[in-house]
């Protein structure tokens, strides 16, 4: 296990380095670095001083090394708009995004697993066919439009739920969370459901395919031959087997959920880092863009690593191979 962990960590560092090169080349080489790093309002004197100070007269590889060195010290530049360190801006908004993403994953499992199980156990029933048709819809509907429709129905027409913001938050561990207050829950309900929509379809399909495949396995028939109750066969023998691939995929999807929260946050004016990045792209606040990309890549790599570890913890066969 130790060797395995080390090897995976090493791979992760390599990917991180590769991504930093891509972001560096993308932002610093393709675009005009002067425009990117220096506020457009700066005058000529300021510009030249900044070019010197930023080392933009140095060869590219040296610039990359200094970028990397700064990044390692947690310095990813200052936002032009907020005049604050970009990293700090992003970290401040991260809890809101994480809360939204986890909420969405929770909803996706809560709705997707039972529906997928039902569709897999009774594949020819009308209900199952409706569920599957619904899942095509879930894949097809553009997230932002569904978000707008949710607002139109639940906020504008019915007036049940607020359309924007986080609502009342409760502070724990120095971070503010919405899900701990009733008002906060009312605020997070719609955005989380909106973000979950695509994942619900995914979970339904995965679960259904898994159930149908597992039901054909000899060990399910053997479990029935042992005289186990249908509930035990379904919820222990079938369910535990499909849970492994579903949990793996859902875990891996956490990264993409965080990425796609960009859209949902824009629709519901949810003050997370996704909203920040869109605003930053629109006003060309490039240090924030760079910081966001680096942070999200880091999150991605961490999530992949954690999912790998969780997977080996869940599946006894994988666990053995790694010993």
């Amino acid at each position: 296990m130790g060797v395995y962990l080390l090897r995976r960590l090493f791979q992760s560092v390599l990917v991180m380095l590769a991504m930093s090169v891509i972001v560096f080349v993308g932002v610093f080489a393709i675009g005009d670095p002067v425009e990117i790093l220096i506020s457009p309002d700066a005058d000529q004197m300021e510009r030249e001083r900044a070019i010197k100070a930023l080392g933009l007269d140095l060869p590219l590889w040296m610039q990359y090394l200094s970028f990397l060195g700064n990044a390692l010290r947690g310095d990813l530049g200052r936002s032009f708009v907020f005049n604050e360190p970009a990293l700090k801006l992003i970290l401040e908004r991260m809890p809101a995004t994480l809360e939204l993403a986890f909420g969405a994953m929770f909803i996706a499992l809560l709705i997707g697993l039972p529906l997928g199980l039902y569709a897999g156990l009774k594949p020819n029933s009308t209900g199952a066919k409706a569920v599957m048709a619904g899942s095509i819809l879930g894949f097809s509907l553009p997230t932002f439009w569904v978000g707008l429709m949710l607002i139109m129905v639940f906020a504008v027409q019915l007036g049940w739920l607020p359309s924007t913001g986080r609502g009342t938050t409760v502070e724990i561990l120095g971070m503010r969370w919405s899900f701990l207050s009733w008002d906060g829950l009312r605020h997070i309900a719609m955005p989380a459901l909106n973000l979950a929509l695509f994942k619900i379809s995914l979970v339904i399909r995965l679960t259904r395919a898994g159930v149908r495949e597992t039901m054909l396995m000899d060990y399910v028939k053997f479990a029935r031959a042992k005289g186990l109750s249908p509930a035990r066969v379904t919820y222990v023998h079938v369910f535990k087997n499909i849970l492994i691939p579903v949990v793996t995929v859902v875990g891996l999807e956490l990264g993409s959920t965080i990425a796609f929260s960009v859209v949902t946050e824009s629709v519901f004016a949810w003050p997370g880092m996704g909203k920040l990045i869109i605003d930053s792209i629109n006003v060309l606040d490039r240090p924030v863009i760079v910081a966001y990309l680096m942070i999200i890549v880091l999150m991605f790599i961490t999530i992949n690593l954690l999912v790998d570890l969780a997977y080996s913890a869940l599946d006894p066969r994988v666990r053995l191979e790694n010993k």
């Binding site: 990917v15 590769a18 972001v23 993308g26 932002v27 393709i30 675009g31 891996l252 990264g255 993409s256 990425a259 796609f260 960009v262 859209v263 990045i277 792209i281 490039r286 863009i289 990309l293 999200i296 991605f300 992949n304």
Partner: peptide, 20 residues
């Protein structure tokens, strides 16, 4: 693999952030 492990929206955002 690298491309597929990256959500489409993020890759697109990145490119549009670089290129405008």
């Amino acid at each position: 693999d690298l491309q597929l492990s990256f959500p489409s929206i993020l890759a697109a955002l990145m490119i549009l952030a670089f290129l405008g």
